[in-house]
Amino acid sequence: MKTTPTILFASILATVVAPLHAAQPEWRSWGGGDPSASARVADGAVPASTPSQTIINEIMQRQQQLQLELRELRDLVERQGYEIEMLRKANQDTYADTDRRLRALEQPPAPVLPQAEVPAAPVPPVVPPASAAPTAAPAGNEQAAYDQAFALLKEGKYEQSIKAFDAFVKAHPSSPYVPNAQYWSGEARYVQGDLKGAMQQFELVVKGAPAHPKVPDALLKIGYIFYDQKNFAKARETLNKVKEQFPGSQAASLANQRLKRMQQEGV
């Protein structure tokens, strides 16, 4: 019944409920209820009204109460379902965002060549000529092996991803992905708390491919590890190096933050 929306429910209740009362006016007196009725029935005493009426009355009351509780529960379930759905969506968005950022870090995983070897103008800079890059574009299984190791890392299977990255470096020592694999192997070890192992990997990146885009991050992490090892002098030296060598980079700003923190901590 569409009257005004506000009178909708009232109106329906009025039309539904009113005739019931009209037809069975005794409901009203039952609705008042005798709180001691159930006790007396339970005691086996003779109630004021007939036992069947009392029982029906009680059942009616309970039924109404159950219906009320059921509706409250339904409201709760519906709201929780909605909240779960919202959380699931938010979670998905967060995951998608993290994934996107990790990908951005990873790409282009094109080989990074020493400055001198980058060919001049006419050749697109990201595709090195065969002579300049003996490995050229990574072969299919090489790419797959790297992706697999990276996928393990994203899933949080650090132990397995460390093994996979290390195996990748062994199997494809001339791959342009080697610094990336070493970096992520270092990250996984760092997360695991293997500071020494992580340090080794980051050093491999810094020393093995000094022009690689992962170097600022690797150096930053080396600085962090020195800090974690309470080797504050070395930490300060390394973090300052990041600031000086890669000004304006994300790593430099993070290095700066850590240096400030160290100053505050008085170390």
């Binding site: 019944m1 429910f9 009320l68």
Partner: peptide, 23 residues
């Protein structure tokens, strides 16, 4: 509960309505 005020979805696949089934 009271179910009322149905209105069609524009593609005809279903209805949206008001209900106090949640109280």
């Amino acid at each position: 509960a009271i179910d009322t005020e149905a209105t069609w979805l524009p593609d005809g696949s279903g209805l949206v309505f008001t209900s106090d089934r949640g109280g």
